[in-house]
Write a protein that binds this DNA or RNA. Structure first.
Lengths: 241, 241
DNA sequence: CGAAGGTGTTAAATTCTTGTTAAACTTTTG
DNA sequence: CAAAAGTTTAACAAGAATTTAACACCTTCG
């Protein structure tokens, strides 16, 4: 799978130039123009069970500097291992930066040559791949969340959250339960009766038309995946193409 | 227990770089951007019964220079023994600095290499530990604390204490137990039933509305982290972004 | 005992969820 | 094809869940 790189720079032009070049090299590229937006992206991807493999981080940003954000990343168990390449103007002492970078981190000075950025990215990703394969043998790994995916449709059973192409979509409880059930066995048709039995609290008695209404509501929320939520005439519903 | 280092420098970037590196080495780090703020921190910590083990002090600061403040520290019985590492640009006479530094103090010139700072810090703290152990024949022995962190939100399970951005916040027992549970698995939704089961003494029977009230009370106490204590409608509560 | 602080309940405001209905639409069946 | 059966959808009213303040009842501790 393609490595996913997050570029954080408050200069949109720089983001776009980097995006273009790194996408050419076959990476998945995300961009953010500040720490706050970047954090949102990171949260979304991680809770949806996707990894971020590298962050290209501008040091000089307002209101939160790249350093500050990096510190937060390093104090969060989920992101402590994500390598960072710091970008900064040459004014800062090189040694300081070197001290800041830990683990697989790296740093690079502006104005940079694109070829240099590409080389560093490649080097950092090679290093982390090597590292993670070393530790794979020993470590149980950070708690992997309880996640069901179908292409870009993801539900996180721990968080009770649903993501559509990496954007969180708010679900009510019943909607969540119904989708979780159907998604747990794509291609399996569930009768309305069975859906009510599983997704509704026990002892609730409602018309089975109710299921239809919920299906409609879910369809609207999951966008392009709505079509996958299919009625099987006179049997019930199923998730799948 | 981790040694506590106070960094005083009017350049926030330098504070942050030093903080990052020293925290990585396992120190507790405080920063201040001037003598006045630094004095407040020192007062707070000392009156709360916490020690400051080392001060990394920039000499060139306005309005009060590092030298001036150091003089005050040396004339205060509570702080006369706290070692200081003075940082200054190379322009100052080395002899002058050497003359100023007394006891376990040290000095270091900017621009410094991080590795050098780390080495000096380690050396100074070793020296002071040696000194203080002369006078303490019986040590209680360092205890590795049981700590859960989420960014600046820290709870110490041994001491049953909670810190918000390095300031202690008083928690009641139930509040502490509830937060500890949620914080033990960020991103996991806990039902009210489960929270009552775990955080309340066994055999207590209370309405589950009670949990809500405690959540509200905790939210108020943890300030900016209050938003991370999230209700998942009709499921329960979860800690996380 | 009395003060201080912790805890559970209540109630009201607010916000969000859900079942039903009804009408339009689609598919199946005779 | 026409009737019957099944599905989709919008709208709405009922009611469930959450947040908070307030208060009463505890326990603890001097």
């Amino acid at each position: 799978m393609a490595k996913r790189i997050l570029i954080v720079d408050d200069e949109p032009d720089i983001c776009e130039i980097l995006r273009f070049n790194l996408e050419m090299d076959g990476y998945d590229v995300l961009t953010a123009e500040g720490a706050e937006e970047a954090q949102r992206i990171v949260d979304n991807y991680l809770s949806a069970g996707n990894s971020i493999d590298l962050i290209l981080l501008d040091v000089m940003m307002t209101p939160k500097s790249g350093f500050e954000w990096a510190k937060e990343l390093k104090s969060d168990a989920r992101t402590v291992g994500v390598p960072i390449i710091f970008c900064t103007a040459k004014t800062l002492e090189e040694d300081l930066l070197q001290g800041f970078a830990i683990g697989s981190d790296d740093y690079i000075f502006k104005p940079f040559r694109i070829s240099e950025v590409k080389a560093r990215v490649k080097a950092v990703l090679r290093r982390t791949r090597a590292e993670s394969e070393e530790s794979k043998t020993i470590l149980p790994g950070p708690t992997s969340s309880n996640i069901i995916k179908y292409e870009g449709l993801v539900i996180n059973l721990d968080r009770k959250e649903c993501y559509v192409d990496n954007k969180e979509v708010l679900f009510t409880r019943l909607e969540f339960e119904v989708l979780a059930l159907l998604l747990s066995k794509p291609g399996q048709v569930f009768s309305r009766e069975r859906i009510l039995q599983v997704a509704w609290p026990s002892n609730t008695i409602v018309l089975d038309r109710t299921v239809d209404v919920h299906i409609t509501r879910i369809r609207k929320k999951i966008g392009r995946y709505g079509d996958y939520l299919r009625a099987k005439f006179s049997y019930g519903y199923m998730f799948g193409r």
